[in-house]
Every structure is written in C-alpha cells, then in structure tokens.
C-alpha cells in the first residue's frame, strides 16, 4: 500500500494535500474498488464546499462510492480530464488522479500517513 507521507487522509479514504489543496482517493481505496470505469465530479469551480460534502462519484465494475470533501473552502480547480480516463484513479491515484483543488482549505478530521496505514490494516477483514 502506497501512502505518501506529505498527505493527510480522511476516514472515508480521501487524501488531501495541504500544500496544494488537491483531493483524491487513496491507493487503498482504489484497490478496494478495483477497476474504476466511471468518475463524475459533482462540484464546479468556484463553488464553496464544506467538510463531508459529496464532491465526486466513482463506479467500478463491482462497486460504487461517493467521495467526500476532506476540507472546507472554495473549489479552485477541477480535474476535467478525469472523466475520460477514469482508470487513472487506479494507475496514479496521487498524481494524475487528483479530483479537485480546495482553496483556503480548513481541514476536517484527518489522519497522517502512519495513522491512516494503521487504520487501513485494522479494516482488513
């Protein structure tokens, strides 16, 4: 499991980059969902989001999941190319697989990488 240490993680498996405001889903999450075939970003640029608001919807062959904002603030950017290449969420969840950027992000209840890894291990069955 890949868990970059510069990022923060929510219990619902989103990552948040405090440096850039970027949000995505963790390696653990993409692995659990398996082959992702559809992603829809549910917020527009300039929209205000609160912690826990659904910002995206992801579907794989076998599962479907909502992605929630790990931080509050204004949506500064949306990764528009993602909907054409949903498999990016599997291949590069922390890079090209970013979903939105939240400006002035006041973080919700998030974990650091070590805590998140422990949390994920605890969930394995």
């Amino acid at each position: 499991m890949n868990t970059p240490s510069n990022l923060k993680y929510a219990k619902s498996d989103e990552w948040f980059d405090p440096a850039t405001g970027a949000v995505g889903i963790s390696d653990y999450a993409q692995n659990q969902l398996s082959d992702i075939v559809f992603v829809e970003i549910l917020v527009d640029e300039g929209e205000e989001v609160t912690v826990g608001k659904a910002i995206a919807s992801v579907e794989s062959v076998k599962a479907s999941s909502e992605i929630y904002a790990p931080a509050a603030g204004k949506v500064g950017a949306v990764n528009k190319g993602l909907s054409d290449k949903p498999e990016t969420l599997n291949s590069d969840p922390y890079g090209e697989g970013w979903m939105i950027k939240i400006e002035g992000g006041a973080m919700g209840d998030v974990m650091d990488a070590a805590e998140y890894e422990k949390y994920c291990e605890g969930r394995a069955h």
Binding site: V37, F38, E59, S60, V61, K62, A63, S64
Partner: peptide, 10 residues
C-alpha cells in the same frame, strides 16, 4: 455492464 449504476450496488 455498468451494473454499479444500479440499485443493488448504488
């Protein structure tokens, strides 16, 4: 196909 759209999953 695209069954994750449907009620039994979503």
């Amino acid at each position: 196909t695209l069954t994750a759209r449907e009620q039994h999953i979503k």
